[in-house]
């Protein structure tokens, strides 16, 4: 219901800005209107979520409804970010979709163990990326009930 008044906010964490472009394009191609924001490293996303550093102004860091998280990032990696999110009483309710190039069983298991809500391997074709965004939208935006705040 919140979609009626507020736009759905998606925060993407990926050190590869090209993937950010691809995902944004795919979301647009899937016909969604969302607030889409990309941060390119682990340390930055933690600042964003905890409104620290350059995100102390909360208006610059609106709380996301869904996080798309890459695992393999220099410095603070996706697992650390996921751990921080899922061990925070307030942030843990935000669904985290791991969106990574990895297909490794160990990464999948580790992600779910830490508390990832979904694990998706980045599709190779753009058409498949659109399909992924469509299904994410269908599930998280349309079907699932998420807390208002």
């Amino acid at each position: 219901m919140q979609g009626v008044t507020k736009r759905f906010k998606v925060l993407m964490v990926d050190d590869d800005p090209e993937d950010g472009v691809l995902v944004q394009k795919a979301i647009a191609s899937a016909g969604h209107k969302v607030d889409f924001q990309v941060v390119t490293n682990g340390a930055e996303v933690l600042d964003y979520l905890f409104t620290e550093g350059r995100f102390t102004d909360q208006s610059r860091a609106p709380r996301p409804n869904l996080i798309l998280l890459d695992l393999n990032m220099p410095g603070v990696d996706g697992f650390t970010v996921l751990k921080q999110i899922k061990s925070n009483m307030d942030l843990r309710r935000i669904p985290v979709v791991v969106l990574t190039t990895s297909e490794a069983e160990t990464d999948i298991v580790k992600s779910y163990d830490i508390g990832a809500n979904t694990f998706i391997t980045k599709p190779t074709s753009f058409a498949d990326m659109i399909e992924v965004m469509k299904s994410l939208k269908k599930y998280w935006f349309d079907s699932a009930q998420l807390p208002v705040a």
């Binding site: 590869d16 090209e18 190039t101 190779t124 074709s125 753009f126």
Partner: peptide, 14 residues
């Protein structure tokens, strides 16, 4: 190798 390849595929699609 998969990473740049994925980009080639995705962006040529795009």
């Amino acid at each position: 190798l998969q990473e740049p390849l994925r980009k080639i595929q995705a962006f040529s699609d795009l």
